[in-house]
């Protein structure tokens, strides 16, 4: 049990669009496991990684499983820090309204739904990144 007492800051940096490669899916799998280990988990979506959160993903035509709904489970896993790189969104002509909403329920406030998403600048992101113990980029 003493091993479980160590809590490190794990950051997962997602930089690739989904489906073209398996990285987005297998990254999400590690994120959920890490959260299950009660670690301090944060997720970053930057570069093409912002496409992972697009609304209205429909994979019927490509014959692959649509895993985008799994992101909405992040709140249930107590992952509350999701950072989206503002510049990456803008470069791609996207805004937050193009992305799915991610929320967690605050028990202390009568299960009020609160957003997990933080829109951040590159300099803010740089600061947050620099304070992590373990950074994994997928």
């Amino acid at each position: 049990m003493s091993e479980q007492a160590i809590i490190k800051k794990f950051m997962y940096v997602n930089r690739k669009s989904p489906y073209g490669t398996i990285y987005a899916l297998e990254s999400l799998e590690v994120v959920l496991i890490t959260a299950a280990f009660d670690q301090d988990v944060s997720l970053v979506f930057t570069d093409d990684g912002v496409y992972q959160l697009m609304k209205n993903q429909n994979t019927e035509g490509i014959g692959m499983k649509n895993f985008s709904a799994t992101y909405s489970a992040l709140g249930d896993y107590e992952v509350k820090k999701v950072y989206i790189d503002k510049e990456s969104l803008e470069e791609r002509g996207l805004s937050l309204s193009d992305l799915q909403e991610l929320v967690w329920e605050d028990e202390d406030e009568d299960y009020a739904e609160k957003s997990l998403i933080n829109l951040v600048s590159r300099s803010e992101l740089s600061e947050i990144m620099n304070n992590q113990d373990v950074v994994l980029s997928f």
Binding site: R15, D47, E87, R122, L125, S126, M129
Partner: peptide
């Protein structure tokens, strides 16, 4: 690809 540029843009000083 843009990885080198992304890295540079997200690096903080002293990195």
């Amino acid at each position: 690809n843009s990885t080198v540029l992304s890295c540079i843009s997200l690096c903080s000083k002293n990195s």
